[in-house]
Structures are given as structure tokens and as C-alpha cells.
């Protein structure tokens, strides 16, 4: 392996030119994105730098509980982002999201590093954290899409839900169609990306491996595993999140909660 060409700090600073370009466009076209661009750039640099040092440290110490703690921390922030995106729907979703992420991402990441890649030990941070991180990053959107669809549909189809309840349906039966739609909404992007991968785009992980000097054929094998594990994790995550969040839409008396939008 020849390794990647190092990027000097001066060269890294040159990349800031791209942000200046975006900032110029924002000023010129009055997009009002200047502040977000600034904050976004600072956060990108700071968060990645932090992650880099944390990874250095964790690779050196090599303790399983530390690896899992870091992974749980990543999930915590992902859950906060998702809960923030679907808030204002009258139903708090942080805990359902966090629990479904923790469970489904842990299972998928374990299967990938321990069973498919056969990293030794299975929690080997050099494999577990990057692969697990990709599960979290990519499946987070799926969960947000699913929950947005769930709450949107319940709001639009409230009369249908109440009709089914009034005919003797349990909440699960009254929202079966809506839940299926919501889960489907979460799963479709990862299925679509399986269609376009290699033709329309070269995925980030493969790009990274190839830049770092890896054999493209090895990079492909990893990428295939990644694509397939994303389908698994988005499915598990969406199914769990929708079933947990759905319960929060109803009172113990099997009524739509008064806070749910659209409820009279």
C-alpha cells in the first residue's frame, strides 16, 4: 500500500475557498445562508478534528467499553438530530428514536464487523467505529423520513384512523396502512442507492479507501457489504422507530392524543 498523498495545512486552508465561493453566492443572491455556512464550516472542522483525536486515542487504548460508549454517543447525537427534525408534531420522539437506533445499529454493526468482516475482536475500533458510523449516518435520514411520513399521514388521514377505531380496531390495526407507508418511505432511499451505486456515483467509503491506496477490488467488497448493511439497518431502524413512535400517538384509552395535529 503506497498510502495517500498527505495534505498540508496550507493546502487544507485552500479548500476553504469553496466555502468562500458559497458565501459569495449567498451574499450576491441574498440567500441568507452566510451564518449557517460559517457555523457549518467551523463545526465540520472542529467535529472532525475532535473525532480524529478521539479515534487516535481509542485505537491506542483499545478497550471494548470505550468503543461501545463512543458508538452510543454517536447514536445519541443522531437521535437528537432526528427528533429535532420531526419535532413540532406534538409527540416527543427522542426516546423511541434513540432506542430503535441503539438496538438496530448495534445489531447490524456487530453482524458486519464480527460475522461478515470477521474483525478480531468484533469490536476492533478500526472496523467497528467507521462501519458503525456509516450505519448511523446513513440510517438516520431513513428514520427521519419514516417518522415525518408517519406523523404527516396521521394528520392527513386522521378521519380514517378514527373511523377504524370507531369500528373496533386497535390502534395498531387503525394505523397499519399508515405505518407501512412510513416504513416504506424510510427504506426506499437505501434501495434506490443500490440501483445507482457504481453507475451514478462512487460512494464515499470506496473513494476514501482508494485515495488511501487500497486495492479497488478490496474497496468494492467493503462497499458491497456497506450497501447491504445499510438496507438492513434502515429497515430495522424504520420498523422499530415507527412501531415505538406510533404508540405515542394514542392514549391508553386507544384515542388519538389531543396533542396530535389534526385532532379536534
Amino acid at each position: 500500500m503506497s498510502g495517500a498523498v498527505d495534505i498540508g495545512y496550507g493546502q487544507l486552508a485552500l479548500a476553504l475557498g469553496f466555502v468562500l465561493l458559497a458565501g459569495g453566492a449567498s451574499l450576491w443572491l441574498k440567500l441568507g445562508l452566510g451564518r449557517d455556512l460559517l457555523v457549518g464550516t467551523l463545526r465540520t472542522v472542529a467535529q472532525l478534528a475532535l473525532m480524529g483525536y478521539v479515534l487516535l486515542y481509542i485505537f491506542a487504548i483499545n478497550l471494548p467499553w470505550l468503543v461501545l460508549l463512543l458508538f452510543a454517543g454517536m447514536i445519541f447525537f443522531a437521535a437528537r438530530i432526528v427528533a429535532g427534525r420531526v419535532k413540532g408534531r406534538g409527540v416527543p420522539v427522542f426516546w423511541p428514536v434513540f432506542l430503535s437506533m441503539l438496538l438496530s445499529y448495534m445489531v447490524v454493526s456487530f453482524l458486519v464487523t464480527g460475522v461478515v468482516v470477521q474483525a478480531d475482536p468484533w469490536w476492533n475500533p478500526r472496523y467497528f467505529l467507521p462501519l458503525g458510523g456509516m450505519v448511523v449516518g446513513n440510517s438516520m435520514n431513513a428514520m427521519a423520513l419514516s417518522l415525518e411520513r408517519l406523523f404527516g399521514e396521521v394528520k392527513n388521514r386522521r378521519e380514517e384512523v378514527e373511523l377504524l377505531l370507531s369500528l373496533g380496531a386497535e390502534p395498531g390495526e387503525a394505523t397499519a396502512g399508515i405505518s407501512a407507508d412510513a416504513i416504506r418511505a424510510g427504506m426506499i432511499p437505501s434501495i434506490n442507492s443500490m440501483m445507482g451505486v457504481g453507475l451514478v456515483f462512487i460512494p464515499g467509503m470506496m473513494t476514501g479507501q482508494i485515495l488511501a491506496g487500497a486495492d479497488p477490488l478490496l474497496a468494492i467488497k467493503y462497499q458491497i457489504v456497506v450497501m447491504l448493511m445499510l438496507v438492513g439497518s434502515t429497515t430495522l431502524g424504520s420498523v422499530l422507530a415507527v412501531s415505538l413512535a406510533r404508540r405515542r400517538l394514542f392514549t391508553p384509552a386507544q384515542q388519538l392524543r389531543p396533542g396530535v395535529p389534526g385532532t379536534p
Partner: peptide, 16 residues
């Protein structure tokens, strides 16, 4: 609740 609602049938205003 499901049993109650079957005994006390409601015809809602809009026929969904």
C-alpha cells in the same frame, strides 16, 4: 375500547 366502540356504533359526519 374496541368492544365498547362496537356496541356504541358511531357514524361520523364525513363518510370516509
Amino acid at each position: 375500547p374496541p368492544q365498547l366502540r362496537r356496541h356504541v356504533g358511531l357514524l361520523a359526519q364525513s363518510p370516509v
